[in-house]
């Protein structure tokens, strides 16, 4: 697959160099994406000392919940961990209902009362499969949260994950989970395209739909801390540069990438 194939339609172009992409690709668009394949190759090529490429392919699907249909049974949570992990594990579940049952996302101390003791609406917390900058992935100092090849679903690469829980702090919606038995982070991987929670829902309150960006409109669940590890800071800086002389149109006026190394 060439790098051109790797660019999703409607997105900006990137430098036409396989090396440039797979090693330190300078991205000229604002919301550029790579396919998971490219990202994987990139990660394989990375050494710890080199800046990492942090822009990921967009996800193709996501799960949305309808609170007016949710009946609070939590069968989605049970399907998630029993059918994927062989245990009913409220800490591990990658879709989260139980934490909103009584009072809603604002909790017992909040002022907006949803849930059983409020207006009875139960909010289903699902992974938004964020676009760039994917908070969990960006925060991971080990680049263990990657776009799944083909689907772009943000998934944890358990081999790289060291269990530092930085990603859990980074998600504004508290959707990163942790498998205590394995000592590894975990998250919704959309059951590789057949989400078991959606199949399990007895009231049709969950749907698996084409991805759209919900991150700009849904308020965070609580406090979060998006850290950018040192290893990735340079990659951020490669795009997020000062705007010399005012507004910049990178498509017309490419800024030289200070990290670019010509292929040998």
């Amino acid at each position: 697959m060439s790098s051109k194939d790797a660019i999703a339609p409607m997105e900006a172009t990137m430098e036409d160099s396989p090396e440039g992409i797979s090693r330190r690709g300078f991205i000229k668009g604002s919301a550029c994406v790579l396919t998971g394949m490219a990202a994987l190759k990139a990660s394989e090529a990375f050494g710890a000392e080199k800046p990492w490429f942090i822009i990921m392919e967009r996800a193709s699907g996501m799960i949305v919940g309808d609170p007016s249909l949710c009946v609070a049974c939590q069968r989605c949570e049970l399907a998630c961990t029993e059918f994927n992990d062989g245990k009913a594990d409220p800490g591990l579940t990658r879709i989260k209902i139980g934490r909103n049952l009584q009072y809603g996302p604002a909790g017992a101390l909040g002022t907006e009362k949803l849930g059983l003791w409020g207006n009875s609406l139960v909010v289903q917390d699902t992974c938004r499969q964020c676009p760039h900058p994917v908070p969990c992935s960006t925060a991971c100092p080990h680049n263990a949260i990657i776009a799944q090849p083909g689907s772009g679903t943000r998934v944890v690469d358990a081999e790289r994950c060291v269990g530092c829980r930085t990603c859990q702090m980074a998600c504004p919606w508290g959707m990163m989970t942790f498998n205590e038995d394995k000592g590894k982070a975990d998250k919704c991987f959309l059951c590789n395209g057949k989400p078991k929670c959606v199949t399990a829902c007895p009231s049709g309150a969950l749907r698996y739909v084409p991805w759209s960006d919900r991150t700009k409109t849904s308020p965070p669940r609580g406090a979060f801390l998006l850290q950018v590890p040192e290893s990735k800071a340079a990659a951020c800086a490669s795009c997020h540069v000062a705007a010399p002389g005012g507004p910049r149109n990178p498509l017309q006026n490419p800024v030289p990438n200070p990290l670019f190394t010509p292929a040998k």
Binding site: S68, L69, C70, V71, A72, C73, Q74, L116, S120, S203
Partner: peptide, 19 residues
């Protein structure tokens, strides 16, 4: 009727929330 409610894990929802 607002919705069905009931026990953990049960799809039946024999308790009903009414408003």
């Amino acid at each position: 009727t607002v919705r069905g409610n009931g026990c953990h894990s049960c799809p039946i929802r024999c308790h009903t929330v009414i408003k």
